[in-house]
Amino acid sequence: MTDTSTATRILLDSRPVGWPTPENFRIEEVALPELEAGQVRVRNEFLSVDPYMRGRMSDARSYVAPYALGAQITGGAIGRVVASRVDGMPEGSVVLHQHGWSDVVQGDAATFRIVPDIPGLPLSVRLHVLGMTGMTAYVGLTRIAALREGETVFISGAAGAVGTAAGQIARHLGAGRVIGSAGTPEKVALLTQKYGYDAGFDYHDGDVRELLAQAAPEGIDVFFDNVGGDHLQAALASFRDGGRAALCGAISSYNTTDRAAGPDNMANLITRGLTLRGFTLGDHLDLSAEFQQRMTGWFEDGGIVYDETIVDGIENTVQAFLDMMRGGNIGKMLVRI
C-alpha cells in the first residue's frame, strides 16, 4: 500500500518575470500531522495545470489573490480519501478540491467535495469537460454571450481544454457555424474532424484578422476569447451588428514584460453596437446544476468527446505547466499521480 504519511508538494519559490522557468518553483517533502477531528486525508489521482495559474504567480491585482512565496501552488485536483475523521466522507470517497499541487493532501472536510465515480469515465473528466473547464465554456456561451440558434461563433485557443468544450457546447446550443483558431495544423484538423467545428485556422499562417475573414466571410455574431491580442482585434473586425464577446482569457499576454498594444479598431464597438464582457466562473456558480444536467445528458447521448494530455508523476508537474503555457497540450493538460 502506498505510504500517505508524507506529501510531496510544489511551492512557488520566486515570482516569474516573463515566461516562468523551473527555477521559480521548489519541490519539498513534508511529514503530515495526525488527522484531527473533522479532517480527511486524500491521495490525489490527477492534478490540474491551467493558464490562470500564471496570473496568480505575479504579485498583481486580479480576481483572486496571488500565490504567496514559499506556499504550495493551489488549484483543482481529484483523489480518494485514504483516512477520515468525519462522518459522511468515508475512506474510498472520490473528492474534488482546490488544494492543488501535492500527491497527498489533508484538511478540513469542508474543503473537499464528494463526486460520483462515473462508470466508464476516468476521474480526470471532473477536472475539465465535466468540471470547471466545461462549465466555463457553458457560462461564457449562455449567460455572457447569450448565443442564439443559428449564429456564427468564433472561439480562440480552440484546441485547448476550454476551447474544445466550447466548440461542442456551441453546437449543442444550436450555433449555425463554429470557427476556431489553434496553433498547429494537427490541432486545426482535430477541430473539424473531432470537435464539430465547421472551420479552423492556424494563427501562425498569417494575419489573424485576414484568416478569420476568410473563415467567416459573412462575419461572426459571438466571440469566445481565450487568447486576446490579435484575436480580439480580428473579432472586432469581423463582428456583425450586435455582436457579443465573452472574454475568458488572454493567454497571449500572460508572459509579456512589455505593455501589450490595444486593438486599433475599438470604434467598431460603437458603430456596430458590440458588447465585450469579461467574466470569471466564480461569479456564476448558480448555473452549476443546470450545466451538470445538460452536460451529463450530452455525454450520455454520445455528443461529447474530449482529449487529455497526461504527464505522469508529481515531480513533473512544473514541466507540464510550462509545456501547457507554450501550447504543448491537446485538450486538457493533467498530471497523473
Rank of each mutant, 00 (worst) to 15 (best):
V188P: 01
N226D: 07
R15C: 06
T256D: 09
P263M: 11
V115G: 01
L236A: 08
V162H: 09
S252F: 11
D207E: 14
A213K: 15
G262C: 10
G150S: 04
P33C: 08
V305Y: 02
G79V: 14
K332L: 11
V42K: 09
G88N: 04
S5W: 02
A250L: 13
G79R: 14
A68Q: 15
T152Q: 02
G196M: 08
D103Q: 01
L11S: 00
V129M: 13
R272P: 00
T111P: 00
A31V: 10
P51M: 06
L173A: 10
V49N: 03
D241W: 13
L123P: 01
A175I: 08
L322R: 10
P51K: 02
V95L: 13
D312R: 10
P122N: 13
V125K: 00
G331P: 07
Q106W: 07
V40P: 00
D198F: 07
A215R: 11
I144S: 03
G75D: 01
A158W: 10
V335E: 06
A246D: 12
S93E: 15
A145C: 03
V139N: 11
E29Q: 11
G243V: 12
V208H: 03
R85A: 04
V104P: 00
I118Q: 12
L69I: 15
M333Q: 15
Q319V: 06
G75I: 06
F291S: 02
I155K: 05
A137K: 06
T275L: 12
M325D: 05
L141G: 03
F46N: 12
L334W: 11
L11A: 10
M324Y: 06
Y63P: 00
E34C: 01
D283A: 14
G282R: 12
